[in-house]
């Protein structure tokens, strides 16, 4: 149907989604979309993205405090450090295009954390993926699921964003999420 309607490169993916090895995303197509109105400026996009990273980083810190197993505790600390780096990269991008230079602390005061990366709350993620929080493999798998949800959300949101520069930022963040996912896969392989 597509090839007959002028679509130049169409690939039929065969074998059913169960053959997909990488993380899949879940939820309806509008999941998390209310976090973005579609009218955001590039600075607004970065502020929302920062808030999502912040939510996830705080989640990992809480989980680190709650974890009983030393290896899992270390793992949550490592995941939390990774999120701090992601936040830093978003803050740097914000400073690069903002006319007013805000300190990181002042910038954080403008950020309202409503959800974690991917647009779900902590409780929703835990209920959905139900990880064994004493297992390093389960913890990384949870982190990978969250990154897959984030990648999915940013790619869906890019269709909604009207401003071209804002859309390019969303696409860049989405591509970074792909890299994050690949890094977590490596971390999983190293266990």
């Amino acid at each position: 149907m597509l090839a007959g309607k002028g679509f130049k490169h169409v690939y039929n993916v065969s074998g059913g989604i169960k053959a997909w090895h990488a993380k899949t995303a879940i939820g309806p197509q509008d999941l998390g979309m209310t976090l973005f109105s579609g009218k955001e400026s590039p600075l607004d996009v970065l502020t929302v993205a920062y808030s999502l990273e912040q939510g996830l980083q705080e989640f990992y810190v809480t989980m680190e405090q709650e974890a009983k197993n030393a290896a899992v505790k270390d793992l949550f600390a490592k995941l939390s450090e990774i999120e701090v780096k992601h936040q830093m990269s978003i803050y740097t991008a914000y400073c690069d295009i903002s006319d007013t230079q805000l300190s990181k602390e002042a910038f954080e005061k403008t950020v309202e954390v409503k959800a974690l990366e991917g647009g779900l709350s902590t409780r929703e993620y835990l209920e959905l993926f139900n990880p064994d929080l004493t297992s390093e493999t389960d913890v990384i798998s949870l982190a990978m699921s969250i990154e897959a949800q984030a990648l999915d959300l940013y790619q869906r949101v890019s269709f909604k964003i009207e401003n071209q520069a804002s859309r390019e930022i969303i696409n860049k963040i989405a591509n970074e999420e792909k890299v994050h996912l690949a890094s977590l896969a490596k971390l999983m392989d190293s266990l």
């Binding site: 149907m1 597509l2 090839a3 007959g4 169409v10 690939y11 039929n12 993916v13 065969s14 074998g15 059913g16 989604i17 053959a19 997909w20 090895h21 990488a22 990648l151 940013y154 790619q155 890019s158 696409n171 989405a174 591509n175 792909k178 690949a182």
Partner: peptide
């Protein structure tokens, strides 16, 4: 149709190599 076929493994590689 002239559409090519990819299995999910090949699709994973294709997606990994192309920006979203």
């Amino acid at each position: 149709t002239p559409a090519k076929s990819l299995d999910f493994n090949e699709a994973e590689n294709y997606i990994a190599q192309h920006p979203g």
